[in-house]
Write a protein that binds this DNA or RNA. Sequence first.
DNA 1: TCCTTGTCTCGACAGCCATCGAATCAACAC
DNA 2: GTGTTGATTCGATGGCTGTCGAGACAAGGA
Lengths: 113, 113
Amino acid sequence: MTILEAATRESAVTCCGMATTPVTEEDAARLAPMFKALGDPVRLRMASMIAARPELCVCEITPAFELSSGTISHHLKTLREAGLVDCERRGTFVYYWIQPEALAALSALLAPT
Amino acid sequence: MTILEAATRESAVTCCGMATTPVTEEDAARLAPMFKALGDPVRLRMASMIAARPELCVCEITPAFELSSGTISHHLKTLREAGLVDCERRGTFVYYWIQPEALAALSALLAPT
DNA sequence: TCCTTGTCTCGACAGCCATCGAATCAACAC
DNA sequence: GTGTTGATTCGATGGCTGTCGAGACAAGGA
């Protein structure tokens, strides 16, 4: 079971945000890395750009930031390892898309239904 | 204008999450520190504990973690500086409460209306 | 006044992280 | 094969951060 699946299922089970029931130690350990990944302005913008479209090519992300391609890849990897996005190579290009369940899990935690 | 007020107003103006419109550079700079503050398991649990009640005494938070009082204070300060909580001393004790607008701003960003 | 208790601040330190440039890899065109 | 372009990985570095313990501060009681 991936982190994402666990987080999604958990939020579905608890069905309420932290404003009603405090998160368990285990949930905190699973969800905190997702918040952490969004805790950098560059990555927050990246995630936002990716979420605003069905999928997005790295070649469209890179020119939006004045950063080296190495740093861009590093941030995308961080978002991927947090379970917030996934990617696929198609020919020369790599495309990223959002994992909506991950966003939903975080959102559910912040705002009780 | 505080960070919190700015974030709250912004989310009210845009009224949609990052799944529909990418956040601006300025919004990202304002909101990322809030996500970052929630990006530590200890702070996420703390915020959750505080959010689950109208207000919470530090003396109730401290025993929930196996950490020194210095570290507890440090994390609470981080949450406060991020605009997620506020506090007040009443006699010997200090009480913390959540800033619901801050959570709402983050939630609005994650989940379009 | 002195002592106790709750909380915060300070100084220090080990570990993590954002960034860069260089090197490497993948796919394609020639 | 050779070269080119897109993307990732690697190594290094300066800065940030989570943690502790000790000290300082605030409030109240003996």
